[in-house]
């Protein structure tokens, strides 16, 4: 059998394979350059960047929970100017596509950052984080279809690059939010961001996290994330990028069979920095075994 075709299209962006490193878990790629092959991953989604620098939340920011991680980083970043100056040059040297995640407090924040990135050749696409549970107002845009549409339109106006809207699972009907952003011009949706959660220290009777609540990721959320990806993929025509506790190729394939065109790997990078590459290899092996020529054939092949 010929080498399986693993290329996927996300709007106008072509990825060498469907495996992406999720925002917030992979820094800006450079942190991992010695311990994984950045040329073999489909894309890297960088840590969310905002217009102005953000200090982040008070520690403790992170704690392990059963088969999961609860975090409340608070979008610590040095702002868009520093990102372009300090982080982008390295990203131009790798073969993985570069997706820059952006976050903001107002429509204007989002559009200013997007227009700044529109001028940068090294940026292949923009992921719009409207779903961070750990900053004040971070999730509001993804809770309401009207607000989510507003951000999408604003960012689309500010850039010609493909726009991916990252959705929150902390909503009643995630598929309806996806539909709303699709109608407003989103090129793709990625889901899910973390589930709002909490942990308590029973000795001190205090919350474990400095921010009191945090976002839950990891295998603990996988079945719920998978169900949300399935519901969303049924409803929209734009590509759905699935994520939530993917730890290996089998998990990635579950998401793709349920309707995802590509997947993102987040928490698993902490456990095994080489996991994204391992997932690419595992999917290829599966395609050979199942005699699947093109990865597109897997997306949404769920038999019901």
């Amino acid at each position: 059998m010929l080498k399986p075709d693993m290329k996927v299209r996300i709007g106008g962006l072509e990825l060498r394979n469907p495996v992406m490193a999720a925002s917030g878990t992979f820094g800006s790629g450079e942190e991992y350059k010695d311990i994984t092959d950045l040329d073999r991953i489909g894309a890297i989604v960088t840590k969310s960047v905002t217009l102005k620098p953000r200090e982040g939340n008070p520690p403790p920011r992170l704690v392990e929970t059963p088969s999961g991680v609860l975090n409340a980083i608070g979008i610590q970043n040095d702002g868009i100017d520093a990102f372009i100056k300090d982080k982008l040059p390295f990203l131009g040297k790798i073969k993985a596509a570069v997706v820059v995640s952006i976050a903001g407090h107002s429509l204007e924040d989002y559009s200013t950052v997007a227009s700044r990135l529109d001028r940068e050749k090294k940026v292949d696409a923009i992921e719009v984080n409207i779903s961070c549970p750990n900053v004040k107002g971070g999730m509001e845009f993804s809770r309401d279809p009207g607000l989510a549409s507003g951000v999408t339109r604003e960012v689309k106006r500010a850039t010609r690059k493909p726009v991916i809207i990252k959705l929150s699972p902390n909503v009643g009907d995630i598929a309806s939010i996806a539909s709303a952003v699709e109608e407003s011009g989103a090129d793709a949706v990625s889901l899910v961001n973390t589930f709002a959660g909490m942990a308590v220290d029973i000795e001190s009777c205090m919350p474990v996290l400095g921010n009191i609540t945090g976002g839950l990721s990891g295998p603990a959320i996988r079945p719920i994330a998978l169900r949300m990806v399935w519901e969303t993929a049924k409803k929209v025509r734009i590509p759905v990028i699935g994520m939530g506790g993917i730890m290996g190729p089998e998990d990635a394939l579950e998401f793709m069979i349920a309707g995802a065109s590509a997947v993102q790997v987040g928490t698993a990078n902490f456990v095994d920095p080489g996991i994204a590459v391992g997932i690419v290899d595992g999917i290829e092996k599966y395609m050979r075994r199942k005699k699947v020529k093109r990865i597109k054939e897997i997306t949404g092949c769920l038999k019901i």
Binding site: E31, E55, P59, R61, L62, I73, F270
Partner: peptide, 22 residues
Amino acid sequence: EENIACGVGACLGCALRTKNGY
């Protein structure tokens, strides 16, 4: 000591407050 997730400076989970910020 702090809870460590990535260990390589990517996740920003192990912040310590210092006189010069986190």
